Simulated assay, not measured.
Amino acid sequence: MMPAKRLLIVYHTQSGNTGALAHAVFDGARQVLDVETRLLRAFDAGHSDLLACDGVLLGTPENFGYMSGALKDFFDRTYYPCENKTNGRPYGIFVSAGNDGTGAVREIGRIANGYGWKLACEPLIVRKAVTPGDLTLAHELGEGFATALSMGAF
């Protein structure tokens, strides 16, 4: 029997919007029973968490057209300990944006490229207030990513 796949969800929230999305992503991923899913705040996640996962979902608010400082700190702390050890890892992004969110997605993508990761799904960008429909989309993101991870689709 194959060991369960592991999904890591790393996020930062200031106002609570990205936190609400992260919890919806997590709830969706937990629907896939043969995937072990962990939800960690960016300041609490480290290189051992990243090395132990098979896929990662990253959540951030858009700050000045960029990702949060906390998510950037996660990257800063994990890059060298994980260098050349996570190549090909599938990842996804969810952003709570006051603007258009594309700057945060672009810069996360540039850093993920340095890790050798592969974008596995379309980024979820939620603009302004988080609605029940946005939470449904976040739930579907988590469930869909975990399902694909479980099936070995990445």
Rank of each mutant, 00 (worst) to 15 (best):
T18S: 12
T60M: 05
Y115A: 03
L58T: 01
G109M: 03
G152K: 04
H12S: 15
G116R: 04
D27S: 14
P123L: 12
A129W: 10
D27G: 14
N17R: 11
A70R: 13
G28Y: 00
S150F: 05
R106F: 09
R89D: 09
L21S: 02
N113A: 10
L149Y: 01
Y80E: 15
L124C: 14
G114I: 05
F43M: 15
A52F: 06
K128N: 14
G46T: 07
R127L: 02
F145S: 02
Y11Q: 02
N63W: 06
K128Y: 10
Y80H: 14
D54G: 07
V130Y: 07
E140W: 06
D27F: 11
V56M: 11
A42R: 03
V35P: 03
D73S: 15
A24R: 01
A146L: 11
E107I: 09
C53A: 06
C53F: 01
A104Q: 03
D27R: 11
Y79H: 05
D134F: 03
A138E: 08
H23T: 10
I93A: 05
K128W: 08
R41C: 11
G69R: 14
T136K: 11
T78V: 09
E140D: 14
R41I: 12
T60H: 03
T78R: 07
Q14A: 15
D27L: 10
I93C: 07
G98I: 09
G59M: 05
G28N: 00
Y11V: 01
C82Q: 11
E143W: 03
G133F: 05
G16P: 09
G59C: 06
S15Y: 09
D134I: 02
E36C: 01
T18D: 08
N84K: 15
R89P: 06
G101C: 08
E62P: 09
G19E: 00
G65V: 08
A20E: 06
R127Y: 02
G152T: 03
I108K: 06
H23W: 12
G59N: 05
T131A: 04
G98A: 13
I125V: 15
Q14T: 15
R41H: 13
E83W: 15
T86P: 12
A24T: 02
I125L: 12
G142E: 11
D49A: 05
T86Y: 04
V25S: 03
L149Q: 00
G16F: 12
F26A: 13
Y66W: 10
D49F: 06
G98W: 03
Y66F: 12
F145A: 02
E107S: 13
F74L: 12
G92P: 08
V32S: 02
N63Q: 13
D34Y: 04
G16Y: 07
V95F: 02
Q31E: 08
K85R: 13
T78Q: 05
V130L: 13
A138Y: 04
T147Q: 14
A129G: 07
T131R: 04
G133H: 09
L51P: 00
G144H: 08
A45C: 02
V130S: 10
R30W: 08
L40Y: 12
F43Y: 15
A20M: 06
V25L: 04
L51N: 00
T147G: 13
G59Q: 06
L58F: 05
Y115C: 01
V35D: 01
L33D: 13
N99I: 14
A52K: 06
A22S: 09
G133D: 12
A138M: 11
A104N: 07
L124E: 10
P61K: 05
N87H: 10
